[in-house]
Amino acid sequence: MTFTSNRLLARYADCIYWLGRYIERAENLARILDVNLHYSRDSRGNQNWRSIVQLFADEEQFDAVYDVASYGNVVQFYVLDRDNPSSIATCVLAAKQIARTLRPLISTEMWTHINILNNTVSTWTAEDIKPSELSRICTIVKQECQTHTGITEGTFFRDQSWHFNLIGRMLEREDQTTRLLDMKYHLLLPPDQTVGSAVDISQWNALLRSVAGYHAFRREHPRGMSPEAVAGFLLFNTSFPSSFAICIEEIDENLGRLRSRYGLRAGTGAMELLDETRAALDSHTPQSVVAFGLHQFADYLQRQLISVNTEIRRDFCGALPTETM
Protein backbone atom coordinates (compact mmCIF):
# COMPACT_ATOMS: atom_id res chain seq x y z
CA MET A 1 0.00 0.00 0.00
CA THR A 2 1.50 3.31 -1.03
CA PHE A 3 1.57 6.29 1.21
CA THR A 4 -0.99 8.29 -0.78
CA SER A 5 -3.66 5.60 -0.94
CA ASN A 6 -4.08 5.85 2.82
CA ARG A 7 -5.63 9.26 2.61
CA LEU A 8 -9.30 9.94 2.95
CA LEU A 9 -10.87 13.35 2.47
CA ALA A 10 -12.51 14.54 5.66
CA ARG A 11 -15.65 15.37 3.70
CA TYR A 12 -15.83 11.84 2.33
CA ALA A 13 -15.48 10.40 5.83
CA ASP A 14 -18.53 12.39 6.87
CA CYS A 15 -20.49 11.35 3.79
CA ILE A 16 -19.76 7.65 4.09
CA TYR A 17 -20.69 7.78 7.76
CA TRP A 18 -24.03 9.35 6.87
CA LEU A 19 -24.63 6.88 4.08
CA GLY A 20 -24.45 4.16 6.72
CA ARG A 21 -26.84 6.04 8.94
CA TYR A 22 -29.46 6.88 6.31
CA ILE A 23 -29.71 3.37 4.93
CA GLU A 24 -29.98 1.94 8.42
CA ARG A 25 -32.58 4.55 9.30
CA ALA A 26 -34.73 3.76 6.27
CA GLU A 27 -34.58 0.05 7.06
CA ASN A 28 -35.54 0.54 10.69
CA LEU A 29 -38.37 2.83 9.80
CA ALA A 30 -39.80 0.33 7.33
CA ARG A 31 -39.56 -2.35 9.98
CA ILE A 32 -41.32 -0.27 12.60
CA LEU A 33 -44.17 0.66 10.26
CA ASP A 34 -44.60 -2.90 9.10
CA VAL A 35 -44.60 -4.30 12.62
CA ASN A 36 -47.03 -1.71 13.83
CA LEU A 37 -49.40 -2.69 11.06
CA HIS A 38 -49.25 -6.35 11.96
CA TYR A 39 -48.58 -6.89 15.60
CA SER A 40 -49.11 -3.85 17.64
CA ARG A 41 -52.83 -3.90 18.17
CA ASP A 42 -54.51 -3.30 21.46
CA SER A 43 -57.20 -5.56 22.93
CA ARG A 44 -59.81 -4.08 20.62
CA GLY A 45 -57.61 -4.54 17.59
CA ASN A 46 -56.78 -0.84 17.28
CA GLN A 47 -53.35 0.36 16.38
CA ASN A 48 -51.71 3.22 18.06
CA TRP A 49 -50.18 5.20 15.22
CA ARG A 50 -49.58 8.16 17.46
CA SER A 51 -46.96 6.11 19.27
CA ILE A 52 -44.75 6.12 16.20
CA VAL A 53 -44.80 9.91 16.11
CA GLN A 54 -43.90 9.86 19.78
CA LEU A 55 -41.18 7.32 19.22
CA PHE A 56 -39.31 9.70 16.97
CA ALA A 57 -40.21 12.74 19.06
CA ASP A 58 -41.79 14.26 15.97
CA GLU A 59 -44.99 15.49 17.59
CA GLU A 60 -44.36 19.14 16.96
CA GLN A 61 -43.50 18.74 13.32
CA PHE A 62 -46.27 16.23 12.70
CA ASP A 63 -48.98 18.28 14.43
CA ALA A 64 -48.03 21.37 12.46
CA VAL A 65 -49.05 19.65 9.24
CA TYR A 66 -51.51 16.89 10.11
CA ASP A 67 -54.64 17.18 12.25
CA VAL A 68 -54.93 13.61 13.49
CA ALA A 69 -52.51 10.72 13.90
CA SER A 70 -54.53 8.49 11.60
CA TYR A 71 -53.08 5.59 9.70
CA GLY A 72 -53.06 7.59 6.48
CA ASN A 73 -51.40 10.66 7.96
CA VAL A 74 -48.73 8.87 9.94
CA VAL A 75 -47.80 6.56 7.10
CA GLN A 76 -47.79 9.45 4.66
CA PHE A 77 -45.55 11.38 7.03
CA TYR A 78 -43.07 8.55 7.47
CA VAL A 79 -43.04 7.04 4.02
CA LEU A 80 -43.66 9.68 1.40
CA ASP A 81 -43.42 13.10 3.01
CA ARG A 82 -40.37 14.84 1.61
CA ASP A 83 -40.73 17.63 4.13
CA ASN A 84 -40.12 15.15 6.91
CA PRO A 85 -36.34 14.89 7.17
CA SER A 86 -36.66 11.32 8.48
CA SER A 87 -39.23 9.84 6.10
CA ILE A 88 -38.25 6.80 4.07
CA ALA A 89 -38.42 8.86 0.87
CA THR A 90 -36.16 11.53 2.38
CA CYS A 91 -33.68 9.01 3.78
CA VAL A 92 -33.43 7.16 0.50
CA LEU A 93 -33.06 10.40 -1.44
CA ALA A 94 -30.43 11.63 1.01
CA ALA A 95 -28.60 8.32 0.67
CA LYS A 96 -28.71 8.69 -3.09
CA GLN A 97 -27.41 12.24 -2.99
CA ILE A 98 -24.62 11.24 -0.66
CA ALA A 99 -23.85 8.24 -2.83
CA ARG A 100 -23.62 10.60 -5.77
CA THR A 101 -21.02 12.64 -3.93
CA LEU A 102 -19.28 9.43 -2.97
CA ARG A 103 -19.26 7.86 -6.40
CA PRO A 104 -15.50 8.15 -6.70
CA LEU A 105 -15.21 6.15 -3.48
CA ILE A 106 -17.96 3.55 -3.39
CA SER A 107 -18.30 0.64 -5.79
CA THR A 108 -20.30 1.01 -8.98
CA GLU A 109 -22.63 -1.71 -7.70
CA MET A 110 -23.35 0.26 -4.52
CA TRP A 111 -24.13 3.38 -6.49
CA THR A 112 -26.27 1.64 -9.09
CA HIS A 113 -28.30 -0.11 -6.44
CA ILE A 114 -29.02 3.06 -4.46
CA ASN A 115 -29.84 4.91 -7.65
CA ILE A 116 -32.39 2.25 -8.63
CA LEU A 117 -33.82 2.13 -5.09
CA ASN A 118 -34.36 5.87 -5.15
CA ASN A 119 -35.91 5.66 -8.61
CA THR A 120 -38.34 3.07 -7.21
CA VAL A 121 -39.22 4.95 -4.03
CA SER A 122 -39.69 8.23 -5.86
CA THR A 123 -42.50 6.74 -7.95
CA TRP A 124 -44.59 5.80 -4.90
CA THR A 125 -47.86 7.59 -4.36
CA ALA A 126 -50.72 7.46 -1.86
CA GLU A 127 -51.91 4.31 -3.66
CA ASP A 128 -48.77 2.49 -2.58
CA ILE A 129 -49.24 3.16 1.12
CA LYS A 130 -52.80 1.91 1.47
CA PRO A 131 -53.10 -0.69 4.28
CA SER A 132 -53.17 -3.45 1.70
CA GLU A 133 -49.90 -2.25 0.19
CA LEU A 134 -47.90 -1.01 3.17
CA SER A 135 -46.41 -4.34 4.08
CA ARG A 136 -45.32 -4.91 0.50
CA ILE A 137 -43.45 -1.61 0.24
CA CYS A 138 -41.95 -1.97 3.72
CA THR A 139 -40.63 -5.32 2.61
CA ILE A 140 -39.12 -3.73 -0.47
CA VAL A 141 -37.37 -1.06 1.63
CA LYS A 142 -36.09 -3.59 4.15
CA GLN A 143 -34.85 -5.96 1.50
CA GLU A 144 -33.23 -3.25 -0.57
CA CYS A 145 -31.48 -1.77 2.46
CA GLN A 146 -30.22 -5.21 3.35
CA THR A 147 -29.14 -5.71 -0.23
CA HIS A 148 -27.21 -2.47 0.04
CA THR A 149 -25.49 -3.77 3.14
CA GLY A 150 -24.68 -7.01 1.37
CA ILE A 151 -23.32 -5.23 -1.70
CA THR A 152 -21.25 -3.03 0.59
CA GLU A 153 -19.90 -6.04 2.41
CA GLY A 154 -18.96 -7.72 -0.84
CA THR A 155 -17.66 -4.84 -2.94
CA PHE A 156 -16.63 -1.88 -0.82
CA PHE A 157 -12.91 -1.34 -0.52
CA ARG A 158 -11.91 -1.76 3.11
CA ASP A 159 -9.86 1.28 3.80
CA GLN A 160 -10.69 4.02 6.30
CA SER A 161 -14.03 4.71 4.66
CA TRP A 162 -15.21 1.17 5.40
CA HIS A 163 -14.78 1.84 9.12
CA PHE A 164 -16.57 5.18 8.98
CA ASN A 165 -19.45 3.50 7.19
CA LEU A 166 -19.73 0.80 9.85
CA ILE A 167 -19.56 3.33 12.66
CA GLY A 168 -22.41 5.29 11.07
CA ARG A 169 -24.53 2.20 10.60
CA MET A 170 -23.96 0.98 14.16
CA LEU A 171 -24.63 4.35 15.75
CA GLU A 172 -27.91 4.61 13.89
CA ARG A 173 -28.90 1.08 14.85
CA GLU A 174 -28.19 1.82 18.49
CA ASP A 175 -30.13 5.02 18.31
CA GLN A 176 -33.14 3.06 17.05
CA THR A 177 -32.83 0.27 19.60
CA THR A 178 -32.65 2.61 22.57
CA ARG A 179 -35.46 4.71 21.16
CA LEU A 180 -37.72 1.69 20.80
CA LEU A 181 -36.92 0.50 24.27
CA ASP A 182 -37.56 3.91 25.71
CA MET A 183 -40.80 4.38 23.86
CA LYS A 184 -42.14 1.03 24.89
CA TYR A 185 -41.58 1.56 28.50
CA HIS A 186 -42.43 5.16 28.71
CA LEU A 187 -45.22 5.68 26.27
CA LEU A 188 -46.75 2.54 24.94
CA LEU A 189 -48.21 1.16 28.05
CA PRO A 190 -51.50 2.89 28.79
CA PRO A 191 -51.95 3.77 32.47
CA ASP A 192 -54.81 1.32 32.99
CA GLN A 193 -52.80 -1.64 31.75
CA THR A 194 -50.48 -3.43 34.02
CA VAL A 195 -47.10 -4.86 33.28
CA GLY A 196 -47.53 -8.39 32.04
CA SER A 197 -51.06 -7.91 30.68
CA ALA A 198 -52.05 -9.19 27.26
CA VAL A 199 -51.60 -5.77 25.70
CA ASP A 200 -48.27 -5.36 27.38
CA ILE A 201 -47.05 -8.69 26.07
CA SER A 202 -48.18 -7.95 22.54
CA GLN A 203 -46.30 -4.67 22.65
CA TRP A 204 -43.07 -6.26 23.80
CA ASN A 205 -43.65 -8.75 21.09
CA ALA A 206 -43.97 -5.95 18.53
CA LEU A 207 -40.87 -4.29 19.89
CA LEU A 208 -38.83 -7.42 19.38
CA ARG A 209 -40.19 -7.86 15.90
CA SER A 210 -39.34 -4.24 15.03
CA VAL A 211 -35.70 -5.08 15.51
CA ALA A 212 -36.01 -8.51 13.91
CA GLY A 213 -35.35 -10.02 17.31
CA TYR A 214 -38.39 -12.08 18.17
CA HIS A 215 -37.03 -15.42 17.07
CA ALA A 216 -33.58 -14.65 18.43
CA PHE A 217 -35.17 -13.78 21.76
CA ARG A 218 -37.07 -17.05 21.76
CA ARG A 219 -33.84 -18.97 21.33
CA GLU A 220 -32.56 -17.46 24.55
CA HIS A 221 -35.92 -17.36 26.36
CA PRO A 222 -38.16 -20.13 25.06
CA ARG A 223 -40.89 -19.27 27.57
CA GLY A 224 -42.38 -16.12 28.92
CA MET A 225 -41.76 -12.50 28.17
CA SER A 226 -40.89 -10.14 30.98
CA PRO A 227 -39.79 -6.52 30.59
CA GLU A 228 -36.51 -7.46 32.23
CA ALA A 229 -35.89 -10.26 29.79
CA VAL A 230 -36.63 -8.14 26.71
CA ALA A 231 -34.73 -5.08 27.91
CA GLY A 232 -31.84 -7.26 28.95
CA PHE A 233 -31.82 -8.95 25.58
CA LEU A 234 -31.76 -5.67 23.67
CA LEU A 235 -29.15 -4.07 25.90
CA PHE A 236 -26.78 -6.83 26.98
CA ASN A 237 -27.00 -9.75 24.60
CA THR A 238 -23.70 -10.33 22.84
CA SER A 239 -25.09 -12.36 19.93
CA PHE A 240 -28.02 -10.26 18.80
CA PRO A 241 -26.99 -7.87 15.94
CA SER A 242 -29.07 -4.94 17.18
CA SER A 243 -28.17 -5.18 20.85
CA PHE A 244 -26.59 -2.16 22.43
CA ALA A 245 -23.65 -4.18 23.68
CA ILE A 246 -22.74 -5.48 20.23
CA CYS A 247 -23.09 -2.16 18.48
CA ILE A 248 -21.03 -0.28 21.01
CA GLU A 249 -18.37 -2.97 20.70
CA GLU A 250 -18.30 -2.57 16.92
CA ILE A 251 -18.07 1.19 17.07
CA ASP A 252 -15.21 0.89 19.52
CA GLU A 253 -13.44 -1.69 17.41
CA ASN A 254 -13.72 0.35 14.21
CA LEU A 255 -12.53 3.50 15.91
CA GLY A 256 -9.59 1.50 17.23
CA ARG A 257 -8.78 0.26 13.73
CA LEU A 258 -8.81 3.79 12.37
CA ARG A 259 -6.28 4.74 14.99
CA SER A 260 -4.06 1.68 14.89
CA ARG A 261 -4.10 0.77 11.22
CA TYR A 262 -4.27 4.23 9.68
CA GLY A 263 -2.44 6.16 12.33
CA LEU A 264 -5.29 8.62 12.86
CA ARG A 265 -4.71 10.45 16.09
CA ALA A 266 -8.22 11.83 16.44
CA GLY A 267 -11.15 10.10 18.12
CA THR A 268 -9.91 9.96 21.73
CA GLY A 269 -12.97 11.84 22.96
CA ALA A 270 -15.30 9.33 21.31
CA MET A 271 -13.30 6.39 22.70
CA GLU A 272 -13.50 7.79 26.21
CA LEU A 273 -17.24 8.22 25.89
CA LEU A 274 -17.57 4.64 24.70
CA ASP A 275 -15.52 3.39 27.66
CA GLU A 276 -17.71 5.35 30.01
CA THR A 277 -20.88 3.98 28.41
CA ARG A 278 -19.62 0.43 28.53
CA ALA A 279 -18.73 0.82 32.18
CA ALA A 280 -22.26 2.01 32.89
CA LEU A 281 -23.63 -0.97 31.00
CA ASP A 282 -21.34 -3.37 32.87
CA SER A 283 -22.46 -2.03 36.21
CA HIS A 284 -26.06 -2.99 35.48
CA THR A 285 -28.14 -6.11 35.14
CA PRO A 286 -31.49 -6.33 33.32
CA GLN A 287 -33.19 -6.24 36.73
CA SER A 288 -31.30 -3.22 37.96
CA VAL A 289 -31.98 -1.31 34.74
CA VAL A 290 -35.70 -1.84 35.14
CA ALA A 291 -35.50 -0.98 38.81
CA PHE A 292 -33.38 2.08 38.07
CA GLY A 293 -35.87 3.17 35.42
CA LEU A 294 -35.66 2.02 31.83
CA HIS A 295 -36.48 5.45 30.54
CA GLN A 296 -33.71 7.15 32.47
CA PHE A 297 -31.23 4.55 31.38
CA ALA A 298 -32.26 4.65 27.70
CA ASP A 299 -32.15 8.41 27.86
CA TYR A 300 -28.62 8.31 29.23
CA LEU A 301 -27.53 5.94 26.45
CA GLN A 302 -29.12 8.22 23.85
CA ARG A 303 -27.26 11.24 25.14
CA GLN A 304 -24.00 9.32 25.10
CA LEU A 305 -24.58 8.34 21.47
CA ILE A 306 -25.27 11.92 20.50
CA SER A 307 -21.99 12.93 22.09
CA VAL A 308 -20.12 10.14 20.32
CA ASN A 309 -21.58 11.34 17.02
CA THR A 310 -20.50 14.90 17.73
CA GLU A 311 -17.00 13.85 18.75
CA ILE A 312 -16.42 11.69 15.69
CA ARG A 313 -17.69 14.24 13.25
CA ARG A 314 -15.75 17.08 14.82
CA ASP A 315 -12.54 15.10 15.16
CA PHE A 316 -12.37 13.40 11.78
CA CYS A 317 -14.67 15.31 9.51
CA GLY A 318 -14.11 18.88 10.56
CA ALA A 319 -17.80 19.32 11.49
CA LEU A 320 -18.66 22.14 13.85
CA PRO A 321 -19.73 21.02 17.32
CA THR A 322 -23.12 22.68 16.93
CA GLU A 323 -24.19 20.34 14.14
CA THR A 324 -26.55 17.70 15.47
CA MET A 325 -27.53 14.21 14.37
Binding site: R7, L9, R11, F164, L258, Y262, L264, R265, A266
Partner: peptide, 9 residues
Protein backbone atom coordinates in the same frame (compact mmCIF):
# COMPACT_ATOMS: atom_id res chain seq x y z
CA UNK B 1 -3.06 21.02 0.97
CA UNK B 2 -6.14 18.87 1.18
CA UNK B 3 -8.11 18.21 4.34
CA UNK B 4 -8.06 14.53 5.23
CA UNK B 5 -9.09 12.51 8.26
CA UNK B 6 -5.42 12.44 9.24
CA UNK B 7 -5.00 16.19 8.85
CA UNK B 8 -3.58 18.21 5.94
CA UNK B 9 -1.91 16.30 3.11
Amino acid sequence: WMRTTAGPA
